[in-house]
Amino acid sequence: MILRFDHVNYVYDADGGQPVHALSDIDLTIGEGEFIGLIGHTGSGKSTLIQHADGLLKPVSGRILADGEDIWEEKFDRKALRARVGLVFQYPEHQLFEEDILSDVCYGPMNLGCSAEEARERAVSALRQVGIGEDLFGQSPFDLSGGQKRRTAIAGVLAMQPEILILDEPTAGLDPRGRDEILALARTLHEERNITVVLVSHSMEDIARFAKRLLVLGDGRLVFDGPTGEVFSHRAELEEMGLEIPRPQRLLEALKEHGFPEIGTGAYTAEEAARLILRELEKR
């Protein structure tokens, strides 16, 4: 599915005391099979933006088009949209409520009108994808570890079989191992199932490793939209917005300033940076 934001504006508390312009003239297209990183400072409008993508907030002006259809048209089925655009909120484990894991994951498909049998099938396959073993299916979601809870919650969205998966800070509060599991899951879903992934993150390293295209929000405006490497080359502008470029790239730039004037700086993952450093060392 192609999701298009057509000059979208959103204002919080439009009729109240102090209106806040949360989104200003957002114009972008999320194409099929993309892996997009979304970054921005706290309060830059990231959450507002992704809630628009799922039809949870209605733009004050502008349109959101799903395959060319305006999602706020009267006849448009937003419930079906929410199945096609899977939105995983921050700390999704806080929305678990059922007595056992399997029923919780069934909640989404059941809401879509699946039969109990089909919902169960989808739930089992979603849980398998996130790596939750069958021995845990009957357990209470509240007895799981933090990482398991989060994966269960993500399975709850995957069971709806979305075409676009939006993950809002999916690694917040997890230990390094839990973080790697979640990111590996996002990559697998993207590569093997060709799901479009939008990853919202504070971690430039994570974004740099996975996202091919990068969106940068600042004060509700789309400041950058382009290939990850190109966006990270705007170091000064990003730092002015309180965002840092990935650490490997910072290391390379520091090396360039301090005795390695020849070194390339166009690498933003640790592996690529290591390769560039090795190449430079071999020259000597």
């Binding site: 799922d54 419930k79 806080h94 929305q95 909640y107 809401n111 879509l112």
Partner: peptide, 13 residues
């Protein structure tokens, strides 16, 4: 509000 939206994202009505 947050939980409501999260469940709506899962098709709740």
């Amino acid at each position: 509000d947050k939980i409501m939206k999260a469940q709506m994202a899962r098709g709740a009505d």
